[in-house]
Simulated assay, not measured.
Amino acid sequence: MKKISFLFLLAAAFILNGCGSGDQAEDDGQTPSEDQQTEENDGSNATEGTVDTAAAEEAYKKSCQSCHGADLSGNVGPDLTEVGSKYSQEEILEIIEKGKGGMPPGQATGEDAELIATWLAEKK
């Protein structure tokens, strides 16, 4: 009788283990859903079409504000309040990297330049 009870419990444990607890998503071989990916993302990286505004503003203050003003209205450099209606993100990035007119190249580089360009492209 003890053997039968033990075997029954063992079989039940295997069956229940195979069923799972119900808390996990069914593994259908697909990647996590967008909602699951969002929950896992700590928000430190901007996704395509969005920009980390705080990081972009900080990079702007460091690299651009002295010429273009704290409010983007211009100082020594031109007004940038509506620069996104004149230039695309790619064009703005090129200006930042290569310079234009009186603006020297490389005032911001790498990720900072990309953040600033994406942020400014939204200014329309």
Rank of each mutant, 00 (worst) to 15 (best):
M1A: 13
M1C: 05
K3N: 10
F6M: 09
A12V: 08
A12W: 01
I15A: 14
L16W: 07
N17A: 15
N17E: 10
G18E: 08
C19M: 15
C19G: 13
G20R: 03
S21M: 13
G22Y: 11
G22R: 11
D23G: 10
D23P: 01
D28C: 06
G29F: 00
T31E: 13
P32N: 06
P32E: 06
S33L: 05
S33H: 04
E34T: 12
Q37G: 01
Q37V: 12
E40N: 12
D42E: 04
D42M: 04
G43D: 02
G49D: 02
G49Q: 03
T50E: 14
T53L: 01
A54D: 15
E57S: 06
E58T: 15
E58S: 15
A59P: 11
A59D: 08
Y60Q: 12
K61F: 09
K61A: 15
S63T: 15
Q65H: 08
A70G: 14
D71P: 04
L72R: 12
L72V: 06
S73K: 14
S73D: 11
N75M: 09
N75I: 03
V76H: 04
G77H: 02
G77R: 03
L80A: 04
L80T: 08
T81Y: 02
V83P: 00
K86H: 10
K86G: 13
K86M: 12
K86P: 02
S88K: 10
Q89I: 04
Q89E: 15
E90G: 01
E91L: 02
L93F: 07
E94M: 09
E94H: 07
I96K: 01
I96Q: 02
E97D: 11
K98G: 04
K98Y: 05
K100P: 02
G101W: 12
G102C: 00
G102A: 13
P105M: 08
G106C: 07
Q107V: 15
A108T: 11
T109N: 13
G110S: 04
G110Q: 07
G110T: 02
D112F: 07
T118Q: 06
L120M: 09
A121Q: 05
A121M: 04
A121D: 07
K123I: 11
K124Q: 15
